[in-house]
Every structure is written in structure tokens, then in C-alpha cells.
Design a protein around this nucleic acid. Structure first.
Lengths: 202, 202, 202, 202
DNA sequence: CATGAATGAGGCTTCATTCAT
DNA sequence: GATGAATGAAGCCTCATTCAT
């Protein structure tokens, strides 16, 4: 942003309006929930007229879906990046968890209003977040497999298959999403990972 | 109904009406969410007139709060009962978790619309579920303390205080609430408890 | 209305509200057209709140349909009454035409906005006015048949079947519906009937 | 298009754009009605930008008026041509009627949405179609006069003045405009003329 | 001239709440 | 206490029109 010329900024202004709307709406949805946020509110927050919203999104639901898609993309990028890291088991698992459950993703899914996601878009959750979730599951499963092969992990000792172990790691980590703030989230996530991994170790 | 006297029926009728409303509303809220459930719907489901709802509850929000309070009470009873059990560590922890996270509580908090709980009552969650949550936290903490004293657990080995260990156990278990069905919930809860406890064991 | 007691009036008041709305809406639709008449306008004219309209009609379209149905019923009654009359050919035909094309029916179908009927309700015209139109066609056809049998009419002399003769009588009479006012309508209708019948006479 | 010079193309292009808009809008109005046709639709159909419409027409209403004026001109030409024909009474009357009520005119006035003409322009009908209607009335009246003078017609026998006879002929013929298709229209118009003329004959 | 992004008034509908019976 | 007709604020969306480029 800093190095752009005036002309570039202007050009960006038009293209960015969509993103300004998305970002304003995301804020409002997170703070007040889908239903309590009116299109009027969003328009005011984005500093555009009500009708302008409909130039970029066919309906309130579609705006919401666009927000989710944007977030899902960011999450997918994060997960992909985490997958590429060359780290020891626990740190890599932490990186994956953080990428999937972390900041942006948790914004929407753990916000008090995230449940409305399913409300408005019906099977939206599946459609929008399904892909990245599968990618994430596979990555964790892969980690468990490698750890088991290396003899670092021993799921059977806890009576779990490799698949069940991965599922349990994920489920437990999800508990951190209830944390009230970013810091608590990170601390709990780390502790959960440490404990569950310890439980899986050979 | 058959054996009751007329007076009893009347009394019961009046007392029951409040509960009929609560129970009808709970069903609807769980199925359709707070916002999508109209007072009209509730009245119809409870077989009373719309105006009657306002004889028992000052507003829709207050009705919702009453529902939550009812649920919180049930959970508190379950937790208290679990606390009284004399069981080995893991089984007692499982009983506590089940009581707190289980059936009814999960019905509302993990239903697709449970997040609206916070929506309508704002700080309702704190107010209504705060007490039982504290009770629950203390019960788990107590369990950790006992386990540590007995030498069964060793939080320090994982770099955790007893308080942090209890917090982590709870957080991890909460992840099971995302399970799509009762059975999955129980299986995941059990696995999470097993793994985290194993991680805490001396 | 005149002989009713106060209580009866009160009772009627509730039942009548539907009719007050219909009648207010009919006036507005006729004067300003379907689209230019807002539900707000109708509510104001009927002296009720906007929401009240929706207690009686599910939507604006349904209100419009109800109006049409009301009118169609009135027309059907008029046609049935005209059919029962024992009059000479021309006067009976005039009575039929007047019943079908006359006052109320013309209000809606020839009002500058009647065409919107088809607009809003799609195939509403067929559904709502179809029955009475068929009844009317049959009545005219019957008249032509009787006249022909009695030797009073001779469609063949004009190269028309009895059916075509009836169709033409109706079509020609419809031209009167364009009249700007009631009086002109009646005068033109009478003249058209006289001329076309004369043209059919033996 | 191919043989035109660049200059001519440009000139034609500019002049044509107005007509392209009118013709595109006419199509849309006829198919979907005035209100259901948005300026956006018209712009798209005419392959110009929305703003361009306002370079040629001050408003949607004015565009509509321009369309009507165009149609009225075409009708006037047709009536004038029919007036010049040297034909026997019935055929000339038929030609006049066809010119006035026929193809283009009926397109707009009998289309399901033609009534909206009055809607948007209020007294537009009078203003735009008034002149040609007077011309038409005079032409028919002239025909009646000539026929009466020649002894071919005898309005008085039906109790009509010459003026009333002309008015009735026109009114009756208008009934054909309700015909659902071109063919029915022509058949009904012919039958109506035949019958009414027969009724006027000496 | 031409464009099309932006505007904002206005329309339909829902629903929590009230109140006369 | 019980009723349910009535209310009216508030929400989503459309579209004729404008104006900076």
C-alpha cells in the first residue's frame, strides 16, 4: 500500500470496494451476528450506499458466503504453508493446528455468531470449508503415520487406530477455539497438543 | 393426568403451562434457531395464545433466558451427582465431562443455533452458565489435585501447574462438542480423556 | 346495514375488515394501478396498520387476487340472474351483456390498470374469470341457437356458424368497454347490440 | 450497413441509436410491461450504456412517450393511406379499421401491458393518440355519410344519427382488439364489420 | 458523446409486543 | 388468567437517475 502512486491507489479504489465491503461486513458480523447486522449497517461501515452493496453481492446471504470463502481461502493458504514446513512432530502439528484453527478461521467459526453460517447458507459450511477441512485432516493423519512409522508415536498403546488418533488430536485441539482471547487460545492449543501427543507417544 | 383431582389438575395446569412453553420453545430454538423461531411458532407449539406467553415471560429474550436457566440447573444437578461418585480417576473425569458437556447441555450449546444464546442475552452465558462452569472447573481441579497427591498424575512433567492441567483437560474435552452426533461425541470424548490423562500421568 | 344492532355492527366490524381492505384496495388499484398502489397506501385508505393487511392476505398479489375473485363472483351472480330472465331476444342479450361487461366487471377489466391483473397473477385471468366467461359464452350461444330455431336469426345469411355469430356478438359488445364513462358505455353497448343483431336477423 | 461510407455510418449510427433504443424498449415493454422493464434491461437490449439512454430521453416516461409517438405516426400513415383508397364501402371500412386497430397499434394497446401507457404518462393517451383517433373518426364518419347519401346505409332505421352510427361501428370493431392472436383478430374484425354494416344497411 | 459505478428513496414483508375483550 | 387482532418499527431489495471520467 505504501509505495503505490496516486493513480494506482485510485485504480485500487474501485477494485478494493468489494474488499472494503467484505471487511466491514466481517467486522459487523463478528461483533453483532448475521441477523443483527443490517445491510444498512454494512453500507454505513463501508461508507457506501445501500444499493452499492448489491452491485457487488446479489444478496445478504451471498455477501456472507463471499466472506466465508475469503476466510476459507486464507485458511487453505495457511494450511498449505504449514504442510510444507520441515519441523519436528510436535512443532509441525502445532503449526498445522494454528493455521487451521488460528486467528482468522477462529474469528468466524468461534465467534458467537458463526453458527449462523449454517443458518443462512444451509449447507454452506460443507461447501465452503469442507475442502480445507479435508486437506487439514489428511495433513494431520499424514503426521501421525510418519510419527508411528518412525516409532515416535504408538496409537495402538491407547487403543486407537492411526485414523482415530488423528481425529482425536483434531477434536481435542478444537476445544481451544472456545478460548476468549487470542493469547488464551494459543496457550491452550499448545497445552492440548503437548498433552495429547504425550498420550500418543511410544 | 387421569388420577389427579380437579384442583390438582388446575394447579398442575398452571404450573405446567410455563414448562410446556419452555419445552416447546427449546425444541423450536434447537431446530430453527432463536431468530427463526417466532413467538407465534412457540405459542402454537405450546398450544396457547401468543399473549399468554407474555403472562409468563416478559419478552422473547427472557423466555430464552429461562430456558437456559432450566438447562443450567439440569447440568448442575448432573455435575453434583458426578462429583459424589466414588470412581477411579479416569472414569470419574469421564463422568464429570459427560455431565457437563453431555446430553442436554450439548443440545443447546452445540446446536447450530446455540451461539445465538450469546446473541440475545449478551452476557447471558456468563450469568446463566457461569456458576455451573465454576463448579465444574473446581471439580476437575480437585480431581487433578487428588491425582497429583496420589502420585498418579504429574502435571509438572508437562510443564503445567495443576490449574493449567485442569484447564487443558477441560478445553480439550470441549472439542468433542463439535461432534455431529451423540455417538461420535462419546467416542471422541473418551479418546480425548484417555489421551490427555495419559499425557498427564506420572 | 341499517337495521343492525350495535352488537351486530361490532361483530360485523371484525368480519368486515377484510371487505374494507378489499374495497379500499379496489379503489386505489382502479385509480392508480397495481404497481403505483403501495401496501402503505392501502393500509392508510383502509384505516389499518400495514401489518394488519397481512393478517387477511398473505401478500399484495393475494390481495389483488381476492379482489378479482370478489368481482368475478359478482359478475357470475349477475350473469346467472340475466340467464333466468324471460325476455325477448334483444333485451335478454342486452341484459346478459350488461351483466358481464357492465359496471363492476368493466371497473376492473377496462380500468387503465386492469391489464396488470395478468401481470401480477400470471394466469390469474384464466383462473379467476375463466369460469364466468365460459358461462357467459354459453348463455349467448344458447340465445343465438334459440333465435335461429325460432327463425328470428339467420347466421348463415352472414356466412357465420351459430358459434361464430355468438363469438362476434360478444367481441363487438366488448368494444363498449372502452367507453370513458358509464353512460357512454350503456349507449354504445345498446347500439352495438342493436346493429349486430340486426345484421344477424333473418 | 456494408455499402455505407464511414461518414454515413457515423451519421446513421447516431440517428439510429435513438431508434434502436426505441425499438428495443418497445419489444421489452410489450413482453414484460412498463414497470417490469428496467432501464438496465433497455440499455442491454439496445447495446448501450444506461447513461446513454438519458442522452436521448430525459426519463423512462419520456422514452415511453416517444415510443407511443412513433407508433401513433405509423398508425396515422396507415389511416391516411386507407383514406386514399378507392374501394366499396365495406372493404374501405375494413381497410380503415385494419389500419387503425391493426398490427402495430394493437401491439401496444392490446398487449397485456399496454394499459400501463396511461399509467406512466397519465393523459398520454389523449395527447399522443388523440390526433390520429380524430382523423380516424372523421374518416369513418365520412364513409357513413357517403354511404347514407348513396342510399346504401340507413342509420335512422336503427335510430342512430350518422355520428352515432360511426361511433358504434368503431366501438364494435374495437372489440376485436381483445383477440388473442393476429388471425383471430382479423376474423373477428371482419365479422364485426359485416354484421354492423348489415345492421346499418338500408 | 458515452460510460457504468454509485446513489437513496421507496416497496414488500415479518414479527415482537400490546391491549381490549 | 387467556386470547388473538392489531400495531408499526425495521429489514431486504429494486431501480430510475446522476455524474465523474
Amino acid at each position: 500500500m505504501s509505495g503505490q502512486s496516486g493513480a494506482a491507489q485510485k485504480t485500487a479504489g474501485l477494485a478494493d470496494k468489494r474488499e472494503v465491503i467484505i471487511s466491514s461486513a466481517l467486522d459487523l458480523f463478528r461483533h453483532y451476528g448475521y441477523r443483527r447486522t443490517s445491510m444498512e449497517d454494512i453500507a454505513r461501515a463501508a461508507a457506501v450506499a445501500k444499493g452499492t452493496l448489491y452491485l457487488y453481492f446479489k444478496s445478504k446471504d451471498e455477501l456472507f458466503e463471499a466472506i466465508c470463502r475469503t476466510l476459507a481461502e486464507q485458511v487453505a493458504e495457511g494450511v498449505t504453508a504449514a504442510e510444507a514446513l520441515d519441523l519436528p512432530l510436535e512443532r509441525k502439528l502445532a503449526a498445522l493446528m494454528e493455521a487451521k484453527l488460528g486467528f482468522v478461521y477462529r474469528w468466524i467459526l468461534s465467534s458467537p455468531h458463526a453458527a449462523e453460517l449454517v443458518d443462512s447458507g444451509s449447507r454452506l459450511k460443507e461447501n465452503v470449508f469442507g475442502d480445507v477441512h479435508v486437506q487439514f485432516q489428511n495433513a494431520v493423519l499424514q503426521l501421525v503415520r510418519e510419527g508411528t512409522q518412525r516409532g515416535e508415536l504408538d496409537p495402538k498403546a491407547s487403543g486407537l487406530t492411526q485414523e482415530a488418533a488423528a481425529e482425536t488430536l483434531i477434536a481435542a485441539a478444537c476445544g481451544a477455539e472456545k478460548a476468549p482471547d487470542e493469547e488464551t487460545f494459543r496457550r491452550q492449543l499448545a497445552a492440548i497438543i503437548k498433552l495429547t501427543l504425550r498420550g500418543l507417544r511410544a
